[in-house]
Design a protein around this nucleic acid. Structure first.
Length: 484
RNA sequence: GCCCCCUUCGUCUAGCGGCCUAGGACAUCGCCCUUUCAAGGCGGCGGCGCGGGUCCGAAUCCCGCAGGGGGCGCCA
């Protein structure tokens, strides 16, 4: 059995979006699962819209996701080049062959823009230039006329067995003769994709559902040239929350945005994989390595899936919590730096302290971007006292309890020979006993004055991370402001 | 307009003729844990689009309908 070769072939007309990312992922998983090769090819034949910027963005996103390709840009490979604009001679060679064999013809019709023309919808090219002989066409070309090359679509039923959908059939006569080489000599998608897939020995074409009706056209070209046919598998689309095609108005659509929004690539990949594929059993959280082991095309869903950012967020939280404090700090630090909480240099010297912070806030956020706000409490003294929180207000109003509790602890702190968790704990216990207060009535005043919140980090953690000076400062400030 | 595809809780899905009183996950609600908030644990609510068949028996097979999505470019 020959080696399995799959490919992901984005066109660089924008960033890598979630649908493309999932297609790439499924190709990657299939290749790795079968010990095959994953090829990346850039389909840049739309000269007007393709940009280097997009190519870079796509490569960046692929790397971020961890979808390493075996052949393609930056890597090369024996079937290159992997940019379509660098393969023009090849396309021309096969076009000439199709012309000679009578499967294609020159078309001198003027270009019509029928993109937005509602009435033109469904109208296929009538085949006006089919009748022009190759010899006549060559004369006109020699005389300076411009022509595109069209493929003669056979008027027969075209069937194929889709890996995910099963038998699919189309009536070829319903398709018009498509342009395969434009007037400017650049090939069109449906043609170039066949030449490349065939020449790159692609064995399985796994792509988005939106290509399913292109497949019969491509099959016709495979047959006309006599190329070996790959297998086709069409993966359903990803929809927005309202069930329409995922678009900008639904929120982030590019992979890069998810990176910026604090999603971990391993969580994103995990979520994407489960959108349309399910493993045997009930497990939902598993690393790429295990997905590779378990991946199977027979378990890919046929129906479209709605992108649920809430579940993605949950999954991201699961991954955040599975990271060690050290790993999490590494991920979260860039966000803390960009939010101005700390500088990179300062972070170097305060690593132990930062690790404590990370540890205490670890299970209180699901996105890396949420970490700075959670950590802000530990940086600087201008944290907000949430007086509109009823629990907070309660202890501000109850000046007696709050005043006594805080006053007691301040005195204890001043008298404390050695500040530390054990001493702090003893002081709090002593406060309860001496004042005759419930635990709640000692903890809440401390919590409210130290954090300004009714929830949040543990009081002991606050004492530990803030240190004696800052704790004393916060307690005194609070007393002065609210119980004087 | 024509063609193709899809259809199980709000969402992602398991199910491939009897193991289904339809299972899991997110969300939601409740309880437990707890100095608080989370996290975590436990539990509740909630679904086979509709109509015909086939069969002793259908979420599962067939047909029709409806709804949704995609395509019909010298875009990919």
């Amino acid at each position: 059995m020959s080696e399995i070769r799959v490919r992901f072939a984005p066109s660089p007309t924008g960033y890598l979006h979630v649908g493309g990312a999932r297609t790439a992922l499924f190709n990657y998983l299939y290749a790795k699962n079968t010990g095959g090769k994953f090829i990346l090819r850039i389909e840049d034949t739309d000269l007007a819209r393709s940009t280097d910027e997009s190519i870079n963005a796509i490569l960046r996103s692929m790397k971020w996701l961890g979808l390493d390709w075996d052949e393609g840009p930056e890597k090369g490979g024996e079937f290159g080049p992997y940019f379509q604009t660098q393969r023009l001679d090849t396309y021309n060679k096969y076009a000439a062959q199709l012309l000679e064999s009578g499967h294609a013809y020159y078309c001198f019709c003027s270009q019509q823009e029928k993109k937005d023309d509602a009435e033109a919808q469904g109208s296929k090219y009538p085949g006006t230039c089919r009748a022009i002989s190759l010899a006549d066409a060559k004369k006109r070309l020699a005389a300076g006329e411009k022509a595109a090359i069209r493929f003669k679509m056979p008027a027969k039923e075209i069937k194929f067995k889709d890996i995910v959908r099963g038998e699919v059939s189309f009536d070829g006569s319903l398709f018009g003769d498509m342009v395969i080489i434009r007037q400017d000599g650049v090939p069109t998608y449906n043609y170039a994709v066949v030449i490349d897939d065939a020449l790159m020995n692609i064995t399985h074409v796994l792509r988005g559902d939106d290509h399913i009706s292109n497949t019969p056209k491509q099959i016709a070209i495979y047959e006309a040239i006599g190329f070996k046919m790959p297998e086709f598998g069409h993966i359903s689309m990803i929809l927005g929350p309202d069930g329409s095609r995922l678009s900008k108005r639904h929120g982030a659509t590019s992979v890069e945005e998810y990176n910026k929004n604090g999603i971990l690539p391993e969580a994103f990949v995990n979520y994407l994989a489960l959108l349309g594929w399910s493993p045997e059993g009930d497990r939902e959280i598993f690393p790429l390595e295990e997905m590779i082991k378990e991946f199977s095309l027979s378990r890919v869903s046929k129906s479209a899936a709605i992108f649920d950012s809430t579940k993605l967020k949950w999954m991201n939280g699961m991954y955040i919590r599975s990271l060690s404090d050290d790993q999490l700090l590494e991920r979260v630090l860039p966000f803390m730096i960009s939010e101005g909480l700390i500088s990179a240099e300062e972070a170097e010297t305060k690593k132990e302290w930062l690790l404590k912070i990370v540890k205490t806030i670890k299970n209180s956020f699901d996105l890396l971007t949420e970490a700075p706000a959670k950590a802000a409490l530990f940086f600087g003294e201008d944290y907000e006292i949430k007086t509109d929180d009823p629990e907070v207000a309660k202890y501000i109003e109850n000046k007696e309890i709050t005043g006594k509790a805080l006053g007691f602890i301040i005195e204890e702190l001043n008298a404390m020979p050695e500040y530390g968790p054990a001493a702090v704990k003893a002081a709090i216990k002593k406060a309860q006993k001496t004042l005759g207060f419930s635990g709640h009535d000692v903890f809440m005043p401390l919590r409210v004055s130290l954090t300004g919140l009714s929830g949040g980090p543990g009081v002991y953690d606050m004492f530990d991370i803030l240190g004696k000076e800052r704790v004393t400062l916060r307690l005194n400030n609070f007393l002065k402001k609210y119980t004087a």
